[in-house]
Write a protein that binds this DNA or RNA. Structure first.
Length: 259
DNA sequence: TCAGTTGTTTATAT
DNA sequence: AATATAAACAACTG
């Protein structure tokens, strides 16, 4: 269920259980998640390597080693699990990294994205090329000009990874709902005050979601209400609207977020 | 049986 | 040129 905060949670798993340890073994149970690397090369390149501190950029998780860097993207259904000795494998555990004391397991049902290797630092730059700055580090002054002056929907700009790296469908809806901006509003129409509000809510949502390691589904959040049948706005009680915006299932409040 | 899904890329259309 | 839409990837749910 990864949005960027979920990836931050996976980073924490890697930092706790992987960083500083050697990879004893790599098992590729399903090569369908490997991108631009064979199972054999992944195993040979990482076995015996010591893992560094993992970093995140957008939805990518990057782990340096004393060899090549390991890059993971979780798509829509990827997860990273830590498993102690004797824990049963899950049917969707596609790649397993054995380290001292247990296993890091890359689990992914749909295999939409996956794992690759990169020679540092050029290879990492190549993988991340085209991504905008990470959503968690964007200052208010920078944000003002980032959505662009065009006519495309503000939601489309927010989830465009080349504009800002890390915002997904749920986060974009949550941020716009809190900023009281209709998702279809043309990005170029936003006044400076609107942009400041979107930025402020972006910071607020991420500040809460990143430490939790997931997009919060509290009842007072849109994310906690959006899936219910005939769902109501947690703020005003109006029935939430839903439609496709920027090609994605989108939820907003017709009362709080007028066109 | 059919539509839908929290991501990304590519092709095609406007 | 900028923007929008659909499909594809793959697997599962309701």
């Amino acid at each position: 269920m990864p949005e960027m905060p979920d990836v931050e949670g996976f980073r924490a798993v890697l930092a706790e259980h992987g960083a500083g340890r050697r990879v004893e073994r790599v098992e590729v149970a399903d090569a369908g998640v490997l991108r631009d690397v064979s199972a054999r090369r992944l195993e040979r390149s990482l076995r015996g390597r010591r893992l560094g501190d993992p970093e995140r950029h957008g939805k990518w998780l990057i782990t340096g080693t004393d060899g090549p860097a390991l890059l993971m993207h979780f798509g829509m259904t990827g997860e990273l699990h830590w498993a102690g000795p004797g824990q049963e494998r899950h049917r969707h555990d596609r790649v397993v990294f054995a380290v001292d004391g247990g296993e890091l397991r890359f689990r992914d049902m749909r295999k939409l994205q996956g794992i690759t290797l990169a020679e540092r630092p050029d290879g990492i730059s190549r993988v991340l090329a085209g991504l905008g700055p990470d959503a968690a580090g964007i200052g208010r002054a920078d944000f003002g000009g980032m959505l662009g002056g065009g006519r495309r929907a503000v939601k489309a700009a927010l989830i465009d990874q080349s504009v800002i790296a890390g915002l997904g469908n749920l986060l974009a809806d949550e941020i716009l709902w809190r900023a009281r901006i209709h998702p279809r509003r043309p990005a170029g129409d936003l006044e400076p005050a609107d942009r400041a509000r979107v930025h402020g809510q972006l910071r607020r949502v991420l500040r809460a979601a990143i430490p939790a390691g997931r997009v919060l589904d509290r009842a007072r959040w849109l994310t906690g209400s959006r899936d219910a049948d005939g769902a109501q706005c947690p703020r005003c009680g109006a029935t939430l609207a839903r439609d496709r915006v920027a090609g994605r299932g989108t939820v907003w409040c017709p009362h709080c977020q007028p066109v």
